[in-house]
Simulated assay, not measured.
Amino acid sequence: QELAQLLRPASHPQTVLVVDDDPGVLDLHARLVEQLGRHALTARNGREALTMLEHVHPDLILLDLNMPEMDGFALLDVLRARESTRDIPIVILTGRLLSDSDLERCTRGVAGILGKGLFSAQETLDRLQAVLERRASISSATRQLVRRAMAFIHAHFAEPITREEIAAQIGMSADYLTDCFRQELGITPMTYIRRYRIRRACELLRSTDQSITQVAVEVGFADTAHFTRTFLREMGMTPKAYRKNPTWG
């Protein structure tokens, strides 16, 4: 397969299969792929993706998890069981709030996990480009440690956790944790925590009538003014404005 890629004519760009049940997201991600100069194929669920994979062998699969008929987890299981597809790299790009057990299921063959809303379009492009160019990356064992750190953050984001505390939980130094996060996700652990908190705040602002102060405390901000400044920097609007016009999520 690698030899075939090296011998591929320049007129035949790499192919990325984008799998997502949301038509708007599917179109957006296909356009991101095309911005990289790659050819995008699209499927609306796991079954449709499997049908396409009988005829094409993409260089990368960009996969959502929450889909009807066959979700991303079920598709992952099938892809890893088949000799013809088990070596295709997969990047998961999902709005699902991943638990520790979810992250455990996204291990073998998954080259990256990107939460929708946690990464800018450019950061997403950079991650996809790195996978497609097969740049040297951290070992699978270290990648698992990063995902354990992500799971810890997801479980404790409302607490005043520090980089050092996260590193201690998974048995590495704080500086090495930061290096691994940069290689795996392109951002630092503290940036990931901040964005994850804001994402959870967006959900509360959309789905509850809690006050801004209550939302701030629930997602780990002790100071409402700090929460508002951080929210404005990440979302481009205040929490109050977002509640009136929830344009993201």
Rank of each mutant, 00 (worst) to 15 (best):
Q35I: 04
L63Y: 09
I88C: 08
H55C: 04
I88W: 09
L53N: 03
E48D: 15
L50P: 03
T94G: 01
N66F: 00
G95D: 13
T85P: 02
L75F: 09
R38W: 10
L98S: 04
G46K: 04
L63N: 08
G46S: 08
L41E: 13
I88F: 08
H57F: 08
N66R: 14
A43H: 06
A74M: 10
I92F: 11
G72K: 11
R96H: 15
N45V: 01
A49D: 05
E34S: 12
L36D: 11
R96D: 14
L62G: 05
E69R: 13
E69Y: 09
D64L: 11
L53C: 04
A40L: 05
M67K: 06
G95Y: 14
A81C: 00
P68V: 01
T51M: 10
D87T: 15
I88S: 09
V78E: 03
R38P: 00
I61K: 09
A40G: 02
L53D: 02
N45P: 01
P58V: 03
P58I: 03
R38T: 01
D59T: 08
L41D: 06
R82A: 08
L63Q: 09
S84N: 02
D77Y: 01
L76D: 05
M70D: 01
A43L: 06
A40E: 06
D77N: 11
D64E: 13
A43Q: 07
N66V: 14
A40R: 03
R44K: 13
H57T: 14
V78R: 05
V91P: 07
A49C: 06
D64M: 11
V78T: 05
D77M: 07
H55Q: 15
E34F: 12
A43R: 03
H55M: 12
A74V: 04
N45C: 05
T94V: 01
L50V: 04
S99V: 01
L97F: 13
G37K: 07
R38S: 10
T42D: 00
A49W: 02
D64G: 12
V78L: 00
L75H: 08
L98W: 06
R96M: 14
L76R: 10
S84C: 01
L97S: 15
P58M: 03
L75R: 07
H39E: 12
V56K: 13
V78K: 01
G37V: 06
T94H: 00
M70H: 03
R38M: 14
L50D: 03
D59K: 05
E48R: 08
S84W: 00
I88M: 10
L53Y: 04
E83V: 11
L97R: 14
M70T: 01
D77A: 15
A49N: 05
L75M: 14
A43W: 05
D64C: 12
R80T: 09
R38Q: 12
